[in-house]
Simulated assay, not measured.
Amino acid sequence: MKKLLGYFLSPITIVLFFLVLCIFQPIQWLCYKLGGYHAHKRSVDILNFCLTSTIYFLFDSVTFINKQNLPEGRSIIFLANHQSLLDIPPLIWHLRKYHAKFISKIELTKNIPSISYNLKVGGGANIDRKDQRQSITELMKLGQRMKDNTWSTVIFPEGTRSADGTMRKFQSAGIATILKKCPNALLVPIVINNSWQIVRYGVYPLNTFTNVTIEVLKPIEPNGQPVDELVTLAETQIKTYLGQ
């Protein structure tokens, strides 16, 4: 029944999602040209609030839970499991006060309304997976920007999305590179649950009546510990929450 309803409601959601992207393309440009970083960031925050809201037309919902007392004047590396592209808009919106940047494939910087422009000027890292040197350089630049501006970043250490919610092994190389430039960053695991269910049948039909939960877990102080151990600790926290 949920899948059947998705056949009727998915076109509405998809059209609205794309319409929001198109509307915010010139808004972003104007904000950046006239107001610089902060005006542009505000437009991106609102953009992602609107994108997140489109799933409510599927009777889906996102519940964000943060019971942690996270510092606002310190760079944070958020480590999250990754279940679908729908993970990103609510993370941008709910983590907005931490100036959370993302690491993206360089291919996404072209021809996608709103998304491509934000990736070009928003301060994140756009990496070429075929060019290791370029990727490392971009990550180091991101780490330096985090240190200089007290920004944060969201990393998906699995490296790709999980089609069925089952977590892959976390990789630590990217995190280690960022910590070289921003060694005082706090590591904070985030668990995403159920977003894969929305796209379990693909882009069409999208699933309905699905509640996605995103919860911030206990922070991890680096304290000079080996990065592999820190990442494994974050991975264990998330797996325990998901019961995997």
Results as ranks from 00 to 15, higher is better:
Lys2Arg: 14
Lys2Asn: 09
Leu5Asn: 05
Gly6Asn: 07
Tyr7His: 08
Phe8His: 03
Phe8Thr: 05
Pro11Trp: 07
Val15Thr: 13
Val15Lys: 09
Leu16Ser: 13
Leu19Ala: 15
Leu21His: 02
Leu21Ile: 10
Cys22Ser: 12
Ile23Phe: 02
Ile23Met: 04
Ile23Pro: 10
Ile23His: 05
Gln25Trp: 11
Gln28Ile: 02
Trp29Gln: 05
Tyr32Ala: 13
Lys33Asp: 01
Gly35Cys: 10
Lys41Gly: 13
Arg42Tyr: 15
Arg42Val: 09
Arg42Thr: 14
Val44Cys: 12
Asp45Asn: 11
Ile46Asp: 02
Leu47Ser: 07
Leu47Cys: 10
Asn48Val: 00
Asn48Lys: 03
Thr52Lys: 09
Thr54Asn: 04
Thr54Asp: 03
Tyr56Leu: 14
Tyr56Trp: 03
Leu58Ser: 03
Leu58Asp: 02
Asp60Thr: 09
Thr63Leu: 14
Ile65Ala: 03
Lys67Trp: 08
Lys67Ser: 14
Asn69Phe: 07
Asn69Trp: 00
Leu70Lys: 11
Leu70Trp: 06
Glu72Phe: 14
Arg74Glu: 11
Ile77Glu: 00
Phe78Lys: 08
Leu79His: 06
Asn81Pro: 05
Ile88Ser: 06
Pro89Phe: 06
Trp93Leu: 13
Lys97Asn: 12
Lys97Asp: 10
Lys101Phe: 00
Phe102Gly: 09
Ile103Thr: 00
Ser104Leu: 00
Lys105His: 08
Ile106Trp: 05
Thr109Leu: 01
Lys110Ser: 13
Ser114Asp: 09
Ser116Ala: 12
Tyr117Trp: 07
Tyr117Glu: 02
Asn118His: 15
Asn118Ala: 15
Lys120Gln: 11
Val121Trp: 02
Gly124Gln: 00
Ala125Cys: 01
Asn126Cys: 10
Ile127His: 06
Ile127Met: 07
Asp128Gly: 13
Lys130Glu: 11
Asp131Glu: 07
Gln132Met: 14
Gln134Asn: 11
Gln134Phe: 09
Ser135Thr: 11
Ser135Gln: 06
Leu139Phe: 06
Leu142His: 01
Gly143Cys: 04
Gly143His: 01
Arg145Pro: 01
Arg145Asp: 01
Met146Ala: 04
Lys147Phe: 12
Asn149Pro: 00
Thr153Met: 07
Thr153Ile: 08
Val154Glu: 06
Phe156Met: 00
Pro157Phe: 10
Thr160Ile: 10
Met167Trp: 09
Arg168Pro: 11
Gln171Ile: 03
Ser172Arg: 10
Gly174Leu: 04
Ala176Glu: 10
Thr177Asn: 12
Thr177Val: 14
Lys181Cys: 12
Asn184Ile: 08
Asn184Ala: 14
Leu186Trp: 06
Leu187Ala: 09
Asn193Arg: 15
Asn194Glu: 13
Asn194Gly: 02
Asn194Val: 10
Ile198Lys: 00
Val203Glu: 14
Val203His: 14
Pro205Cys: 06
Pro205Tyr: 06
Leu206Cys: 01
Asn207Arg: 06
Asn207Tyr: 08
Phe209Ala: 12
Val212Lys: 01
Thr213Trp: 03
Glu215Ala: 10
Val216Pro: 04
Pro219Phe: 01
Pro219Gln: 08
Ile220Tyr: 04
Glu221Ser: 09
Glu221Val: 08
Pro222Lys: 04
Asn223Ala: 14
Gln225Leu: 15
Pro226Val: 05
Val227Glu: 07
Leu230His: 01
Val231Arg: 03
Leu233Arg: 15
Ile238Gly: 03
Lys239Ala: 05
Gly243Ile: 02
Gln244Ala: 02
Gln244Tyr: 11
Gln244His: 11
Gln244Met: 14
